[in-house]
């Protein structure tokens, strides 16, 4: 990460750079060409988050493209963090998309490998995985800093063309809860070395483990080399908690969270309460620079949570 000068001019970068505790949200594009669906969701997030992740065919289900959705968000005044997975596109397609995204005004990209296609609605698809998420981070870094494509060619249209590299604030994911546990900090370090500017973590339902991970991160001083946004998703019900615990790989739960949800009279309120407690703790945790609030299918609820968590108003968004 380059801490000396701005690299992308994105709002998210400016907020993080200013030392303000950042807040990002998440917007899932529809399984249709309905742009109003994106506009509607963007309205709930605009002004309440510094930027919103736009998922890329999440869970391997074909959806309105993350770049197209990101541009619709830009038009609505909401800064997108466009997610790009390496599942569906090879290095040619991804670099082309990154140039296109940059030309359309997109300034943040989160690099992911993506869920395996067997989990989605086209399990018979050929998988690509030409590169992995780490190689994608590094590719974007070289595009921005060295102004070259993966193949080494300079990013310009012919020898006399102007060098016009994509100025992207590069994000990567980290999962402190996946196995092997003692490899997870190492993997973060690898992503930082590859060129990641910011990290968004897997959603936390095991704060004990997250605290331990952050301690290891601080020991290696990695929090001084990258901005870390901790993943929070309010639980809607005890059923959702049990389902995620049993079916979603790479997410772990502490028993007390499940117990609290099961015993609560109003489970939705309890889920929200847990999320608010988490945000409160994360705000104080050294090395955590913000929260990534993924309210799944609940873009509407983000404003209320952000308000109650004392995260509003957000710093005025800078567009340009």
């Amino acid at each position: 990460m380059n801490r000396n000068s701005e690299v992308s001019g994105s709002n998210l970068e400016r907020v993080l750079r200013s030392g303000e505790f950042a807040l990002t949200g998440e917007l899932g594009p529809p399984k249709s060409a309905d742009r109003n669906n994106v506009i509607e969701k963007a309205k709930y997030l605009k002004g309440n988050v510094d930027a919103a992740n736009i998922t890329d065919n999440q869970t391997a289900i074909a959806r309105l493209s993350s770049i197209a959705s990101g541009v619709i968000c830009l038009e609505q005044g909401l800064e997108p963090v466009v997610q790009i997975t390496t599942r569906d596109r090879n290095r040619l397609a991804i670099q082309s998309d990154v140039l296109g995204a940059a030309a359309l005004g997109i300034k943040n990209i989160l690099c992911l490998t993506g869920d395996h296609q067997s989990f989605g609605n086209h399990p018979d698809a050929k998988n690509v995985f030409d590169i992995d998420s780490l190689q994608l981070v590094n590719m974007l870094y070289k595009m921005r800093e060295e102004k070259i494509f993966e193949c080494g060619d300079v990013i310009r249209n012919g020898k006399k063309g102007r060098v016009a590299e994509p100025r992207i604030f590069i994000g990567a994911a980290a999962n402190p809860f996946a196995e092997p546990l003692d490899y997870r900090v190492m993997r973060l370090e690898k992503k930082i070395n590859a060129g990641a500017d910011f990290i968004q973590t897997q959603v936390i339902y095991n704060m004990e483990r997250f605290r331990q991970w952050m301690q290891d991160v601080r020991e290696k001083k990695l929090h001084e080399k990258v901005y870390i946004l901790a993943g929070v998703t309010p639980l809607k019900s005890a059923r959702m908690a049990r389902y995620m615990k049993e079916n979603v790989s790479g997410i772990t739960f502490t028993e007390d969270i499940i117990r609290r949800m099961e015993r609560a009279e109003d489970q939705k309120t309890e889920g929200r309460k847990i999320a608010l407690e988490q945000i409160e703790e994360l705000k104080k945790m050294e090395g955590v620079h913000g929260v990534h609030l993924m309210a799944i299918g609940g873009e509407k609820s983000v404003q209320g949570i952000a308000e109650e968590a004392g995260l509003l108003p957000r710093p005025p968004a800078v567009t340009g």
């Binding site: 996946a178 196995e179 790989s249 790479g250």
Partner: peptide
């Protein structure tokens, strides 16, 4: 550069 986050 694995493993990914889905190994359990």
């Amino acid at each position: 550069n694995g493993p990914c986050g889905g190994s359990a």
